[in-house]
Simulated scan of single mutants.
Amino acid sequence: MTVLVTGAAGFIGYHTAQRMAQQGQQVIGIDNLNNYYSVELKGARLKQLCELPNFEFRRMDIVDKPALMALFDQYRFTEVIHLAAQAGVRYSLDNPDAYAQSNLVGFLNVLEACRFHQPAHFIYASSSSAYGANSELPYSVDNPVERPVSLYAATKRANELLASSYCHLYGLKASGLRFFTVYGPWGRPDMALFKFAQAILQGEPIDIYNNGQMARDFTYIDDIVEGIALLRCKPPVAEKEGEGVNKLFNIGRGQPIALLDFVECLEKALGVKAQYNFLPLQAGDVVSTWADVSALAQWTGFSPQVDVADGVSRFVRWYRDYYQILS
């Protein structure tokens, strides 16, 4: 069995590819190594992956359809875990073209490759952002999701709809995962925990939006990867033989944490008190997220294990080690 992991140099992609390779799967990882954030950090992740005997890396952009199709021709992937995307809610306000290319054109190219090569399971990354202006908590996959509040969210909802159409037309078996605020070692520098840690250690104030009246379903990376590992063994089942199916799941901790409580966990782990810069809610943001993970739990046995205090402490240990910051 050969598994394709797109976005393998990214945060979730790195951890997922590592887990698959360590489990004995033959993993091909692709990434375009763009400069949205530190290419050095992406390279450090890849260095770890390339030390694994079952992992092979190809630098490739999913927007390049001929190259992608040639890769599928070569390896005949049994499973595709599609995690490559242009991430970030706020950046989508500044550079919408990047989202149109990676999240729409690139996603369509991956679907086209799957159409012709029919992997046993196509798993792809969606986002809790798809819930947009929906105010019914906890978020359920049965909730309406027709009011995205950012371009990023709109592209992720579009991915779900594109996947549904391809499954219907071409018999694909797909699972879409709506990720909820993933954090942990090797995380993205543009995300809150990373930015907060950097600012606090440098004695700079941290920006707290909506005057701190925010909550997120913070989910530790190991729990996310465990969910993916469980799901890849259980593709959705169609009602009739030969039919395709696209099944959506929330993947999160299932427990919202107030932003200021999250920061308090970080202060304790760092041993440093933060300075706060309170600001209004930013365009494209939502006040609260909360995942109903019952569907994934029933389908796979998914059960998150890492609480926020422990997860933040693990991140801080990695952060100090990676940047060689003494306690």
Rank of each mutant, 00 (worst) to 15 (best):
M1Y: 02
G7I: 08
G10C: 04
F11A: 13
Y14I: 02
Q22E: 15
G24D: 12
Q25T: 02
Q26R: 15
D31Y: 04
N32I: 11
N35T: 15
Y36L: 12
V39P: 04
P53L: 13
M60S: 14
L83P: 04
A85H: 01
R90I: 10
N95P: 00
L104G: 05
C114K: 03
F122K: 13
Y124H: 13
Y124R: 12
A125Y: 07
S129T: 10
A130N: 07
A130Y: 06
Y131M: 01
A133S: 12
A133P: 00
E136I: 09
V149N: 14
A158E: 07
C167W: 09
G171Y: 11
S175H: 08
A197S: 15
A199S: 09
G203I: 11
E204P: 06
V225E: 08
V225S: 08
V225N: 10
G227D: 03
L231V: 05
A238C: 10
E239S: 04
E239T: 05
Q255N: 15
E264A: 15
A269Y: 01
N277H: 09
P280D: 09
D292A: 06
S294R: 09
L296H: 03
G301P: 07
F302G: 07
F302H: 12
S303Y: 00
P304R: 02
V308I: 11
V308Y: 00
D310C: 06
V312Y: 05
Y322F: 11
